[in-house]
């Protein structure tokens, strides 16, 4: 075999899985900061202020954007190849997948992408001063908490937010264990634990993100 650089299916999948695992860690950080809202708006603002000013986070956010871009790019490339590998489908095909949401990753991925655009438009672009208007606290600091609270008191917004987050949960259900399998980290002794961890992660993260707007809408 020649030594020319060649991106095999496995190489592309490994890149996908590493980026995916990176995005999973980001979601945990994001959820942690969001959960401050359940305590108080001021605590959330402190968290947002830290994330918005810390030099490491400022540099790392571009790494994060790159992570999203690479994950999305390879996700689409692999999916197109997969569609091409079966030009004619079956008349009758049973549900045979053992990881129930694995079949819909491209669609739940698309949902997350739409959510991401919506999310950037609502928060990140406002913070950057590209759209809308950032509210200020009496002491003259950015009031990210007020921006979030205003949106979380809009019933339509909360409904769409919660639905999209639950669809993201379906994506996450397959995510962690699939990444482990792709990286070759499947051992019969630990596989049950990894699958359980993957599902627990999806449930905790999806419910965590969904509870915050619901709590604010109904109780704050």
């Amino acid at each position: 075999m020649s030594n020319k650089s060649y991106y095999s299916s496995i190489t592309k999948k490994i890149i996908m899985s590493l980026m995916g695992l990176f995005l999973l860690t980001f979601l945990v950080v994001h959820l942690t900061v969001n959960s401050f809202l359940l305590v108080s708006k001021d605590l959330f603002n402190e968290g947002a202020h830290f994330m918005g000013t810390n030099a490491f986070i400022q540099v790392f956010q571009w790494v994060l954007f790159a992570g999203f871009a690479i994950h999305i790019f390879y996700g689409i490339v692999l999916q197109i190849q997969n569609w091409m590998s079966r030009p004619k489908g079956y008349k009758k095909r049973a549900a045979m997948e053992q990881s129930p949401f694995s079949k819909y990753m491209i669609y739940t991925g698309l949902v997350i992408f739409i959510f991401l655009i919506m999310h950037l438009n609502n928060f990140f672009f406002v913070k950057m001063g590209w759209v809308g208007h950032m509210p200020m606290t009496p002491s003259g600091e950015e009031d990210m908490g007020a921006l979030v609270m205003a949106l979380f008191h809009n019933g339509y917004y909360v409904f769409i937010y919660v639905v999209l987050i639950l669809l993201m949960g379906f994506h996450l259900d397959h995510a962690l264990q699939s990444a482990f399998q792709t990286l070759g980290l499947n051992h019969p002794t630990y596989w049950g634990f990894i699958k359980g961890l993957s599902r627990a992660y999806a449930i905790v993260v999806a419910l965590g993100f969904a509870i915050i707007p619901l709590f604010i809408y109904f109780f704050k």
Partner: peptide, 26 residues
């Protein structure tokens, strides 16, 4: 096509070949 870890292959294999082989190959 590219494997997306649906594990349908293992469920349908008449010889019950395990997906741990795929992990080993990876």
């Amino acid at each position: 096509g590219n494997c997306t870890n649906t594990y349908a292959c293992e469920a349908e294999c008449p010889k019950e070949i395990s997906i741990t082989n795929i992990a080993r190959m990876n």
